[in-house]
């Protein structure tokens, strides 16, 4: 039986979904650790990025951070962090994933504030708004589309990377693929492909859903010509 047929059979077996450690369990683990990682990334990267953008400093550090994280293998962080004070288990995995969420969040928060119309900023200052008020009432609302774009890039990346948590038995859908590789390829081929379909499907689904969210939070007048600029900002950080 060829591997694709095997995969269809595997996916059609209800026990593979509902068993302990089945698809539903793994999906839950995958989503909770991804959500926690993205949330942690936002809490760290957004305030920092907005502040860097507000003060106008930050091109250098942001580039440095994204270059460093690009060259650190995910596997390395996943294996190193459990050996530090974080200890084994979910927190270490979440922190490792959050590290990879930071660069796109940071870069987009920074770009979002920087691209705010300087005349709007001057007008706000002229009206007597303090620095913090300018940031909160003028720059932040104008940066929302960029924050959304960064959030989408980061979330998709985290959901994709979370599959690797299975290397350190961190759970998630990757575990299904790893278990398949643990079997012989002839016996596990179907399960391997089925796991691949689930992992890839989830990533594409998250990408699509967040694209809609990104569109919804972008004010209508900003939608069209903003797209090019954001693509550029995202590409510069994701390296794609």
């Amino acid at each position: 039986m060829n591997p694709v047929r095997q995969a269809v059979v595997w996916l059609n077996d209800p026990l593979n979904w509902t068993n302990p450690g089945g698809v539903l369990d793994r999906l839950g683990e995958h989503l909770t650790m991804s959500a926690a990682a993205v949330l942690l990334g936002c809490l760290v990267a957004w305030p920092f990025g907005l502040w860097l953008g507000h003060t106008g400093r930050g091109g250098g550090p942001i580039l440095l951070i994204s270059n460093i994280t690009l060259s650190i293998p995910t596997l390395a962080l996943l294996t190193i962090l459990p050996l530090t004070f974080l200890g084994f288990g979910r927190p270490a995995v979440v922190v490792a994933l959050a590290v990879f969420a930071v660069p796109p969040l940071l870069a987009n928060a920074y770009t979002g504030v920087r691209q705010a119309d300087p005349e709007a900023r001057d007008a706000a200052r002229g009206m007597g708004l303090s620095g913090g008020q300018v940031l909160r009432r003028v720059e932040l609302p104008l940066a929302v589309p960029y924050l959304a774009a960064g959030f989408r890039t980061a979330a998709v990346q985290v959901v994709a990377t979370a599959a690797l948590a299975s290397f350190v038995n961190g759970g998630g859908l990757g575990q299904i693929i790893r278990a398949g590789f643990g079997l012989d390829i002839a016996a596990g081929g179907g399960q391997i492909i089925a796991g691949g379909v689930l992992v890839a499907g989830l990533a594409l689904l998250v990408e699509g859903a967040l694209a809609l969210v990104e569109r919804a939070v972008t004010p209508r007048p900003l939608r069209r010509d903003r797209r090019v600029a954001i693509r550029r900002a995202v590409d510069a950080t994701a390296g794609s």
């Binding site: 998709v156 959901v159 599959a163 690797l164 391997i192 691949g196 992992v199 890839a200 990533a203």
Partner: peptide, 11 residues
Amino acid sequence: YTVPSLALFAF
């Protein structure tokens, strides 16, 4: 690019 590397290995 959205497809995770582990899934590509699996395919």
